[in-house]
Amino acid sequence: MATTQLRAAATEPQPTEESVGVELRGVTRRFRSSRGDEVVALRGLDLSAADGEVLAVVGPSGCGKSTLLELLAGLGDPDEGSLAAGGTSSREGRLAACAYMPQRDLLLPWRSALANAALALEVQGVPAAAARRRALPLFERFGLAEFAGALPAELSGGMRQRIAFLRTLLAGRPVLLLDEPFGALDSITRAAMQEWLAEALAAEPRTVVLVTHDVREALYLGTRVAVLSPRPGRLVAELAVPSESPRPRRETVTDPAFTALEEQALAALEPPRP
């Protein structure tokens, strides 16, 4: 666990309390469908991630993974149960503790890559020029300096996702919530992006909740993997991943220990036989 690891200086988050992890206790969330039926997205979910841990949540489509992140991010409240992020359980507290990265990059087409990332600082009151100056070192550190001036439409999907991740980092929050960050990418780009993210997280350690439907991605990036059932999402398995990240992806995913864990996760995901 990375509890004692020193945080990198560039975007140092200011944890308000001792524990900056994430905790869910008996969280239930219901919706009304357009036909008026009640849909239970999450039922009695218990989950936790300690400070610096990367919790990967894997489950089939529609198991309430995105709902889970929106609740944690403070964009909604659960119907039952309680949840906390960054040591606070109030909705405003969670909103201030978490940086949320949605599935799509949602970059503003009229802003350059640098200005898009700097948006996270600008909305906190940093003047535009100063925000860009503060974002630039991060671009240099992650090898994106030459793309800083490009408009989103000029960038590939993988590159746009990297910019979106830098925007998330620059928000300066202790907890990162990543919703299928590479879901829209082709498998080759995706593998490269997973390696890039592993390195980025090693350089900028945070408490992370990563939601994905890709078991390999979860095992490769997570220090712990939670497997959810189909809707309503409940916890069906929890796997600890022995980690010395970042690891080269190809070596890792072919490691027998890794494939054994993958087997376990896939078995947990399998629907019960009739």
Partner: peptide, 27 residues
């Protein structure tokens, strides 16, 4: 403007006016 983008702005801590100025008006 897409609801997801508004959610993102809210999560970044943007005020209503900041969202109007930086996202909604240009869009």
């Amino acid at each position: 403007v897409e609801p997801d983008l508004l959610k993102l702005m809210r999560s970044l801590g943007a005020s209503r006016l900041a969202t109007l100025r930086r996202v909604e008006l240009p869009a």
